[in-house]
Amino acid sequence: MAPIGDIPIKIEGEPAPPAEYGNALPVLSQVRHALAQLVQGGEPTQIDLGAMPFGPGDEERLMALLGTGEVTATVDALGLTHIQETAFSGVWIVEYLNTDGQRVALHLEVDHVPQLLRSQPEDLGAALAALNTQLAGAPDAT
């Protein structure tokens, strides 16, 4: 199936200027509250932006308010996940895409490191076993 963005649409006349629906600032307050929780008690928070009643332009406004920080990362597992640190340390934008590149979820994570970037505990044991096998099979293994 062709992605919806590929459907050719001709817009006649000027597109309407982006309206201000005022839904970005309340989310920013929620982020502030979550960051305070992280600072005081080390408690991380995840906010599902897909559950917000955003109008056209609200998401862009929120992203502009959050700004861009130093770290970007991409996880390639069952579709790409783009992770971007915002201008506020500890506040991360996590966008999950499916294998067709369509967004399946957009979260804000307020944490030291986003969950998805950490090595998964179950994988560590498997990685150790894999390394052991490789060393055992290597010609110069002792």
């Binding site: 906010i47 597992a77 069952l78 579709g79 996940t81 999950y96 499916n98 979820a105 998964q120 994988d123």
Partner: peptide, 22 residues
């Protein structure tokens, strides 16, 4: 499918079920 892939799937599933990402 790796564990990260699975976690990614679960995060999307949480949104799908209208549950908090936590």
């Amino acid at each position: 499918v790796s564990r990260r892939g699975f976690m990614q799937f679960c995060a999307a599933t949480a949104s799908l079920m209208a549950l908090p990402p936590s």
